[in-house]
């Protein structure tokens, strides 16, 4: 019970912090001092207390989307292994369910982008759907090798099996992880796919789609994006590197697990920050090449599971 509560609360409570950390890393790489790591919390608080402007053409899709996608993002972590291997949440743990819930969020967000009748929103939606159409396959095929190795599509059982494998069999999982990392960068809109802090309308993808949002709805959208980022980090850290997960529900074991998982997540966030600071954004028509590379890595990993 307490574990479920932690799972429900960890995303909304810690996701702004993650965004703060990654911004700090970006600033460090650019020789700036940067804002404090808790600045995103203040930003959200500020946005919640602003009035909002809504396009006269917008329908209920535009108004409801922030609530819909935020609610879905809260449900995402229920199925993934967070601290221990003994948590089970049945149907929510299926990795296809997780992938499809993510797709549902993108679906509504893209509709909201078109809904305002703004050309930026429309083109943002077009680009976002183009990328997510390709990313979905990469995500499925980067998680699939582990599902095949562990003979289950349940994420928690997948983590349990991978943690008990001998290190020699770890090679395909690592290849799959590179594919997953590419999908992560695409889904969470990091460089080289998208620039979360861009101010030029023509280069924006995610930011163009949500350009008409303001006030509390913008706050929800930003918060959802942060939730999604943290979710991907936790998924990557606990499925591909499932070490340190507690095997019991003892308080002590769980506390150790908290420390280990936090370390893994921080390492992954650091890696993301350093990589995105050291490469340039790709041209839109070069992104499919990168995504297909991710897919091929997934397939190589699938074939390597035989050996």
């Amino acid at each position: 019970m307490i574990l479920i509560l932690i799972k429900l609360l960890i995303l909304p409570l810690l996701s702004p912090l993650c965004i703060g950390i990654i911004r700090k890393i970006d600033a460090f790489m650019q020789n700036r001092r940067g804002a404090s790591v808790i600045q995103p919390y203040f930003d959200l608080w500020k946005l919640f207390h602003k009035d909002e402007v809504i396009s006269p053409d917008a329908s209920w899709i535009f108004r409801a989307t922030p609530y819909i996608i935020f609610a879905i993002s809260l449900m995402l972590p229920l199925g993934i292994p967070l601290l221990s291997q003994v948590e089970s949440w049945g149907f929510f743990s299926d990795f296809l369910v997780v992938v499809y819930l993510l797709a549902l969020m993108t679906f509504f967000l893209a509709l909201a982008g078109i809904d305002t009748g703004s050309m930026f929103g429309g083109f943002g939606a077009s680009r976002e759907m183009t990328l997510s159409a390709l990313t979905e396959a990469v995500l499925v095929f980067s998680l699939l090798p582990i599902a095949i190795i562990s003979q289950t599509s349940n994420l928690i059982l997948m983590a349990t099996t991978t943690s008990s494998l001998p290190p020699i069999t770890y090679f395909p999982i690592f290849i799959a992880f590179i594919g997953f990392f590419i999908a992560l960068m695409a889904e969470t809109g990091r460089i080289p796919f998208d620039n979360p802090s861009t101010h030029l309308e023509l280069t924006m993808i995610h930011e163009a789609m949500i350009i008409e949002y303001s006030g509390k709805r913008l706050a929800l959208i930003e918060w959802t994006a942060a939730n999604k980022f943290l979710f991907f980090v936790l998924l990557g850290a606990n499925i591909f590197f499932p070490y340190g997960l507690s095997t019991t529900t003892n308080l002590l074991d769980l506390l150790i697990a908290v420390g280990v998982v936090a370390m893994k997540a921080l390492l992954l966030i650091g890696a993301i920050g350093i990589i995105e600071s050291s490469i340039a954004k790709y041209r839109l028509f070069r992104l499919p090449d990168l995504l297909l590379t991710g897919l091929i890595l997934g397939i190589i990993s699938l074939i390597a599971t035989n050996i």
């Binding site: 899709i61 797709a103 679906f107 429309g122 159409a133």
Partner: peptide, 22 residues
């Protein structure tokens, strides 16, 4: 897997262009 993603893009188009905006 590609079919699922592309179908989503196609129906965002079909629904969005038909029912949304002006």
């Amino acid at each position: 897997a590609f079919t699922g993603g592309l179908a989503a893009a196609c129906f965002v188009k079909a629904f969005g262009i038909t029912f949304l905006a002006r």
